[in-house]
Amino acid sequence: MDAVLHVISDRNRHRLPLLEALAESARGGADVIQIREKKAPASETYGLVRALQQICTEERLSSRILVNDRVDIALSAGIAGVHLAAKSLPIPAAAQLRRQIGWSGMIGCSVHSLDEAIRAQGAGADYVTFGHVFASESHPGLPPRGLYALRRVTEALSIPVIAIGGIDRANVGAVLETGCSGVAVIGSVLNAEDPLAAVKRLKEAMKRSGSSPKVPFCPTAPDLAPAAPLIGSHTKEG
Rank of each mutant, 00 (worst) to 15 (best):
I167C: 03
D115S: 10
A192G: 05
L147G: 04
A197K: 06
L176P: 00
T154K: 01
D115L: 14
A86Y: 05
L84F: 03
L190E: 13
R98Q: 15
E137W: 11
S104I: 01
P144Y: 00
I159A: 06
A163V: 08
E193D: 06
D126R: 14
R98I: 00
P195Y: 04
T154R: 07
V111W: 04
V153K: 13
G166A: 08
Q100G: 06
L114K: 15
A192K: 01
L84E: 03
Y127L: 04
A205C: 07
L150M: 10
Q100H: 06
G122P: 01
R201C: 10
I101Y: 00
L202M: 11
A120D: 02
P92W: 15
A163R: 10
Q121E: 14
P195M: 08
P144G: 04
I167R: 09
S188L: 04
A80I: 01
A93T: 14
K200T: 11
D115I: 13
I186C: 02
D126E: 13
E137H: 13
H112W: 01
V133F: 02
I159V: 15
L150V: 11
D168M: 09
N191C: 06
A174G: 02
Q121D: 03
L114V: 01
I107K: 08
A192V: 09
L97D: 03
K87A: 12
P92N: 07
V185Q: 01
A174R: 06
I107D: 00
E155F: 03
F134K: 02
N191W: 15
G124S: 04
F130V: 14
M106T: 02
R98L: 00
S138M: 10
K203C: 01
V153L: 05
G105M: 02
L190D: 08
L190Q: 03
A95M: 13
V172I: 09
I164E: 08
V82Q: 02
P90H: 05
C180V: 07
A205M: 12
A120H: 15
A135L: 09
G173R: 04
P143H: 14
G102I: 03
G108H: 05
K200R: 10
G122D: 11
R99G: 05
G105V: 05
T178Q: 06
A123I: 01
D115W: 15
D168R: 07
S113P: 09
A86I: 09
G124W: 14
A198G: 13
V128C: 11
G187V: 08
E155N: 09
V199S: 06
A94N: 03
I101F: 01
K87M: 13
G102T: 05
T154V: 13
I91C: 04
V175Y: 08
S110W: 03
I164Y: 02
S158F: 14
A125P: 11
P143C: 03
G102S: 05
I79W: 00
H132T: 10
A80R: 07
G124P: 07
G108N: 03
A120K: 12
A198F: 00
A163Q: 10
V189L: 11
T178C: 05
I91L: 13
P92V: 12
F134E: 07
I164M: 12
P90G: 09
R201I: 12
L84I: 11
F130Q: 04
A163W: 06
V185C: 02
G102A: 06
P90Q: 11
G146C: 07
